[in-house]
Simulated scan of single mutants.
Amino acid sequence: MTALVDTNAAPAGLARRFAAFLYEGVLLFGVVFFAGFLYSVLTRQQHALEGRTGMAVSLFTVLGLYFVGFWTRSGQTLAMKTWHLRVTDAAGRPLGWGRALLRYCLSWLWFLPALISVWALGLHGGGAIIGSLLAGIAGYLLIARLHPQRQFLHDALCGSRVITQLPVRS
């Protein structure tokens, strides 16, 4: 039986969610490093430019398993636990596999416009790529400010929401 969360719980603030986003990036560095290393060893990759597509697909899959696994189990990744955030469906229940997978795929909207612009403009310099990604992230944050409940686009599209869930003090 799944425990229900208060459906009237206020959505988490943008600052708290963005802080969790940044912290998640720090934690995922280790996950991506290990998965990339394992891929390189198993495929006997000799050069970084060889097998880029396979590496990208494997990292996308590993990250998907990480997020979908945590969201369906407890509604919280490690960073979300630290920042007292939980992802639920509109009724306050934990996400099912289908909705969690949809949320994961749609969450790439954070980066997709920036990645498309980098590709379309043929940018190759690190500064230009990072600038484009930062502009895309800032734009995504601004779009959330337009939503009545300050939801990110991927949550609004897939029917999920992120709430603040502070620990119960006894």
Rank of each mutant, 00 (worst) to 15 (best):
M1L: 12
A3M: 11
D6H: 04
D6I: 06
N8I: 00
A9C: 06
A10G: 04
A10Y: 04
A10I: 12
P11S: 08
G13H: 00
G13C: 00
L14C: 00
A19H: 00
F21T: 08
F21V: 07
E24M: 01
G25M: 06
G25K: 02
V26R: 01
L27M: 10
L27Q: 13
L27S: 11
F29I: 10
F33E: 14
F34H: 04
G36H: 02
G36V: 01
L38R: 05
Y39N: 01
S40R: 11
V41T: 13
T43V: 12
R44P: 05
Q46F: 09
H47F: 11
A48K: 09
L49C: 08
G51W: 12
R52G: 07
R52E: 12
A56V: 02
L59F: 02
L63H: 00
L63D: 01
L63N: 03
G64W: 03
G64N: 01
F67E: 10
G69K: 05
W71L: 11
W71H: 08
T72M: 07
R73Y: 04
R73C: 04
S74R: 13
G75V: 03
G75N: 02
Q76N: 09
L78F: 08
M80C: 00
K81C: 09
T82H: 08
H84N: 15
H84L: 06
L85R: 07
R86S: 01
R86L: 07
V87F: 05
V87C: 10
V87L: 13
T88D: 02
D89L: 06
D89S: 09
A90Q: 14
A91D: 14
A91P: 02
R93T: 05
G96Q: 07
R99S: 12
R99Q: 12
A100Q: 03
L101D: 00
L101Q: 00
C105Y: 02
L106F: 10
S107M: 10
S107Y: 02
W110R: 09
F111M: 14
L112K: 12
L112C: 13
A114I: 01
I116L: 15
I116W: 15
I116V: 15
I116E: 06
V118Q: 09
A120Q: 15
G122M: 07
G122V: 08
G126I: 10
A128F: 10
G131I: 04
G131Y: 03
S132A: 15
L133N: 10
L133K: 06
A135T: 15
I137D: 04
L141I: 12
L142A: 14
I143K: 08
H147D: 12
H147K: 00
Q149W: 10
Q151R: 15
Q151N: 11
F152Q: 07
L153Y: 06
H154N: 13
D155K: 11
A156Y: 13
A156W: 15
C158F: 10
C158L: 14
G159T: 09
R161N: 05
R161G: 05
R161L: 05
V162R: 05
V162K: 05
Q165L: 11
P167V: 10
P167G: 04
V168Q: 15
